[in-house]
Every structure is written in C-alpha cells, then in structure tokens.
Design a protein around this nucleic acid. Structure first.
Lengths: 272, 272
DNA sequence: TGGAGGCCCTCCCCTCGGGGGAGGGTCAAA
DNA sequence: TTTGACCCTCCCCCGAGGGGAGGGCCTCCA
C-alpha cells in the first residue's frame, strides 16, 4: 500500500491543479502529509482533501492566500466563520461597486451627445456647523460621512437647520489618495461640541452642476462639469463642494436625489 | 491658455491614477491629445474625459484591457453594446460561481465530522443511447451537457426511456484539463441517429456515493467519496459515472435532486 | 527675475496567483 | 526490461498596476 495520494490524484479530488498544489506547499499553505526525502515526491492523505477544497473555494471568492492561511489557522469554528463572513461582506461591497459601474456605463455609453447644464455661481460667505477629517480615502468616505452627519443631526434638531447639508472634499480624493473631508450643515446657531466645530466658509465662485439620482454614476456628472470648466477657460481653485439639496435624509427614493456639485474656479487669463 | 489638461487634472476627472493613465498611453489605449515633444509632458482634452471614464468603469468590471480596446474601437453603438453585454453575461456566470463557492464552503466549514455513505457496487453491462465529445473543458460541460441531453430526449420519447440518464466524465476534467465526456440514457431500443450512438457499456465495479441537492457543492461529495476510496485501499480505474436519479428534468426543486456518483475502482494489493 | 515647491518625466523592480515549458528523474504495468 | 505516464526543479511569462529613485519642468510668489 502506498504512502498516500500522489499529487495528481490529490489534485483531481481537490479540484486544484498540480502546479497550484506545489505552490501551496512551497508557501506553507498546504503541506503534503509526507515528502519522499530521496525523490521529493509529495504524498497527501485523503483527510487533507477537505482542507484543499476549502482553499480552492476561498480562492474562488478571491480571498488572498494570506487570509486563507489565517482562516485555516483559526481553530475555533466561530472565529473561522467570522473571518469568512468578513470576506463575504467585502464581496457584497464589491457587488455594490459592480452595480455602480454598470449604472455609470449605461449612462456613459448612451448614444447621442451628453448634455450638461452647468453654470457659474457664487456661494456667499456663511457660518456653518461642520465636522472635518484630515486624511480619508474615498472608499472610506461613505462610512465616515454617515457617522459625521448623524452627529450633526443629533446636535442640531430640524428646527435649528437652515438649508441643505453638504460636504467639502479635497481634490486629491479623486486621484485615489487621501485628503481632507468636511461635512457641514447650515444651522441657526452654530456651536462647537465634540467633533463639531464652527466653520466660517468664505464666499467663493463656483462652477455648478446638478446631479440627479443615486450617486452610482455621479462620476459622470463630475466629468461633464470638469469638461465644462476646462472648455470655458476656467481653472480649479479649491476643494469641491457638494450640497445635498435632496438626499437620503429627505427621501428613500434615490431617483429623487439632487446633488449640487460646486467647483471653486477662477478665470484663466489667455496666454499672450 | 494651455494646451489642455495636465495628466494630474485629467486623472482627477476620470478617476484614474496618473500612473495608470501613463500605462494606457504606453499601451495605446488612451492617447493624450498632445505630447510636448521637448518635455514629453502629456496633455489631454476635456472631450477625452468620457472615454477615460468608460475605461475606468469597464476596468472596474474586470474587462481586460484588450477587450476595452475593442469596445472603444467599435463605432457602432449596437456593436459596442453587444460587447459590453457579453461581458455582463460573464459577470453573471462569475456570480453563479461565487454562489456555488459559498454553498460549498458552508458545507465544508460545517463543524463536526462529515459523514459519507459510500458503498461498493457493480454497474451491470448494458446498452444505452449516448452522445460523446472527445475534449471538453469542465466549464463548457454544462452547456454541452444540456444540448446533448435535449437531443437524446428528442430522439427517445418518455415511453422509450428506462431508468435515469447519466454522464461519464474523464478524470482529467477534474484537474482543469480537457477530457472526454459522454451523456447517455438507457432506452428500450437504442439506435444511432445524428450525434447519437449506441454504446455497449461493460459491467464495472464502482464506489458509489449519492449527492443530494443542487450541484453547487457536488465537489464536496466527490472529495468525500475520493477520501473513502483512498482510505479503503482502492484505486481509481476509469472515468467517473454520474447518474441523475432525480435531476432538473424531473423536478424544478434542486433540493430534491439526487445524483449518484460512481467511480470505477479496483482493489490495491498491499505492498509486500 | 529668481527660487521654491509642486508637477511631471523615465526607468527599474515588486506584487499576486498562477501558467508554460525545458530538462531530467521515478514509478508501475506490460 | 522497457515504456509511457507521472513527478521533480528551475526559469520565465502574464496582467494591471504600485513604489520609489533620480531628475527635469512650470508656475506662483516674493
């Protein structure tokens, strides 16, 4: 009777390729039960099939090998389940991104010219209650924004609020980097409290476009506004302002959302 | 007035990184409108923002750059939509695989021992109507199987049929390669017709396990059967037989499916 | 009219999870 | 004993970027 299953037999039972099994051995992810010291032949035990199948399926879910390792290392089934559940959550987020990409593409690939109603406006100086963070990544921004907005809403009941809330976002965020982010609400009597601070926002000239609907394809509106700005010989002068004229706090129907995007701009002087 | 947008400005508007834009230039996917011949600075036009956004979103959907190229090259919006739709179909298949992986993992990670009821049996010699393909890949097998089964069903009406249909699958399929595949149905009066041939299947000793439910996690049953075979000092002697005792043609409720997996085996003689 | 500091350039190497293939040793059935 | 399938190591390749070094360029402000 043999030492165990050869790598080829084991590959068939675990649906992994022979090469991949060798790689997993090399990286310590799945050690053969025995390795012949003279021939270096790998032999596996049938009890290892389950482990190999777990690896195979986790990899199908794009779990990185390092994480597979920690899932396998977790003795406690609960802890293991938590790790897997964490990855499933990431899969759901990935699905959201996929959905947004499809929505956005549908708009981008719509035949015919894409109209954009943009205009120049001036945001007057005003005093608002705000929460800021110095360095957030774009993908963390949604969570951060919700938390901060909840804090503002808790501190200023509806009677205190005047006008729609908004956010100010550093332009570096658009390039994938970290950047400053502010969420604000105009209120009757702004006051500092906890993370909330009183912000004097100066008057600023803006190029404005209104995005209607959920934010899945807001990048398209940004692009159209950016094109409008560039083609009107304007330069970008600061972080973008979003004003949530109608947002998730006003209606549960995302189709009705209205987001005003305002980009501080200045007129470029023509070159001589 | 400048030549256009610098790479950094363009990156922000298209949500691509500067590095990525340079890569797309290098690979001819998205050429800057002008390149300064002395400094090699890239300048983009605002009209290119839409194209860059399309690329960005397609990449989010994991469309390979080569395919992005052909989508962009398609002038006709319909043709373009077809290419995109093709990829969306692939995304759906990916989603099916993800679903199967989750089902399978749930079973694999279920705490406690995993019972398997396997037994040795003999499939008697018999004559069946069959369709074979010499070299199919596992991921093509589902489509191929459905087509072939439909042909068999069309040629042999219910009154002709005796017993459950099945398939014979080369073991190479399990390792990701191509292999022979046969779908068969026992019928009263087998006859060749079109792709259908009459197959004399010899008697064979099988290790058998029954998989209950949809095939999402059938790999686990295969693994358990394989472990059982290995631990009983048996060797695999030929292509695996699946018999669809209850299948999609019998009930729309996948939970009720019963698939008998039979692996031809022989007794290994103990080493001296 | 300088600088300073932020952009931008190229070039090279790294990542991750494999696949292809060369060149050569081993195992087991005929 | 031969033969053919199987296994070994080693090296290179892929795609789609990211990191960083080293150095030039642009533009704003003093």
């Amino acid at each position: 009777m043999r030492d165990g299953l050869t790598i080829g037999e084991f590959a068939a039972l675990s649906r992994l390729s022979v090469r991949t099994l060798r790689r997993y051995h090399e990286s310590g992810l799945l050690e053969p039960a025995t390795v012949d010291p003279f021939t270096n032949y790998r032999y596996y035990q049938s009890a290892q099939i389950g482990t190999a199948q777990v690896i195979h399926r986790l990899r199908q879910l794009d779990v990185p090998l390092a994480e597979v390792r920690s899932i396998l290392a977790a003795e406690d089934p609960h802890q293991r389940a938590d790790l897997v559940a964490g990855h499933l959550r990431r899969l759901e987020e990935e699905l959201d991104r996929t959905q947004a990409a499809i929505t956005s593409l549908r708009r981008l690939l719509r035949p015919g010219p894409t109209p954009i109603k943009a205009y120049l406006g001036t945001l007057p100086a005003r005093t608002v209650a705000a929460i800021s963070a110095p360095a957030v990544r774009l993908d963390e921004s949604l969570d951060w924004f919700d938390t901060a907005m909840d804090e503002l809403d808790a501190a200023f009941p509806p009677a205190e609020r005047i006008g729609a809330p908004g956010g100010v976002y550093a332009n570096e965020l658009l390039t994938g980097g970290r950047g400053a982010m502010t969420v604000f609400r105009p209120v009757r009597h702004p006051r500092a409290e906890g993370r909330i601070e009183v912000l004097e926002s100066p008057a600023v000239d803006l190029a404005v476009a209104v995005h209607v609907g959920p934010h899945d394809d807001i990048d398209v509106t940004y692009g159209l506004l950016g094109a409008w700005v560039a083609s009107h010989a304007l330069g970008v002068a600061g972080p973008v302002h979003e004003t949530y004229a109608v947002g998730p706090r006003d209606t549960a129907e995302p189709q009705a959302w209205r987001t005003e995007i305002g980009w501080p701009v200045f007129r470029l002087t023509p070159a001589p």
